[in-house]
């Protein structure tokens, strides 16, 4: 029987290698590829994995969906990384909805759909992307748990959850009809704790917002009006891991859009939300 510490090392190595395999599979099989980048911990790990998969290179553009309501530190972090790493960044924004004054007070599902789902749909259409790499995980939320690694979307970005194609023996759906696109989920099988353990193992820099200040820290990042910090004293990655190992609170408990309706995320995601 191996020690518990070793067990984590092996488990992380297996997850990392699988994610690299998936990223390479998408790159090999699909022409117009892009990666959604929200600057959060999951996207940051995903970017790191891409650089591992492609030996320091990021051979496709990153997409940032700019709702104009993101926490300001997130935008600063984004600009700095793009500059430092020489990344190709595509910005998606539903300018029409913003001009008409869209905000969360009109209903969080309405706002998310307009500023995130619709903005993403526009970017995909404009750039004719055929695959979008997204850093979602099964342990985040019930409808994400149902996802495939390669998950097809109709022309209108809709997700037919009741009739998903089979996916086994690492054979992914890499061919699909014109007009449709596919969402690629390389870290689908990771947990929140895996993400933090990996950040610790690889010493990946993450945003300061994740660390406690005055007894509060962000566990999940999003738009300022709909994201609230949780009580925490964790000031380092190690302390976050210790905190998460003990907690039973849900990761997205600080995300207001999830709480709006019993099946809020499912409803958002059927229409193309990430």
């Amino acid at each position: 029987m191996r020690a518990a510490a070793d067990a984590h090392v092996d488990s992380l190595a297996a997850l990392e290698q699988e994610s690299i395999y998936i990223l390479r599979e998408a790159f090999s099989k699909i022409e117009r590829l892009a990666m959604l980048w929200s600057m959060g911990k999951d996207s940051t790990v995903l970017l790191w994995l891409a650089r591992k998969a492609f030996f320091g290179h990021v051979p496709y553009p990153l997409i940032h969906i700019d709702t104009s309501y993101k926490i300001p530190e997130m935008i600063e972090y984004c600009d700095r990384l793009v500059r430092e790493l020489g990344l190709e960044l595509v910005i998606g924004q539903n300018t029409k909805a913003l001009a008409e004054g869209m905000n969360h007070k009109r209903g969080r599902l309405v706002c998310c759909t307009a500023l995130k789902t619709e903005a993403l749909r526009q970017v995909i259409e404009q750039h004719k992307f055929r695959a979008i790499i997204v850093g979602i995980r099964r342990d985040e939320e019930g409808s994400r748990a149902k996802e495939r690694i390669f998950s097809q979307r109709s022309q209108n970005s809709e997700w037919d959850v009741a009739d998903q194609p089979p996916e086994f023996w690492d054979q992914y759906r890499t061919d699909f009809p014109p007009g449709e696109h596919v969402r690629v989920h390389p870290i689908l099988r990771w947990t929140e704790l895996d993400v933090w353990r990996y950040i610790e193992r690889e010493k990946i820099p993450v945003m300061q917002l994740y660390f406690a200040e005055n007894g509060k820290r962000y566990r999940s990042l999003g738009c300022a009006p709909c994201t609230s910090p949780c009580d925490s004293s964790a000031e380092s990655v190690g302390e976050i891991i210790a905190e998460l190992s003990a907690t039973k609170a849900s990761e997205r408990s600080g995300r207001a859009q999830d709480q709006e309706h019993s099946h809020a995320m499912e409803k958002l995601r059927l229409r193309g939300y990430m």
Binding site: A13, E18, F55
Partner: peptide, 11 residues
């Protein structure tokens, strides 16, 4: 650190 039971994606 290669682990015996992990299928490594090598280059």
């Amino acid at each position: 650190a290669t682990c015996a039971d992990v299928k490594e994606a090598v280059g």
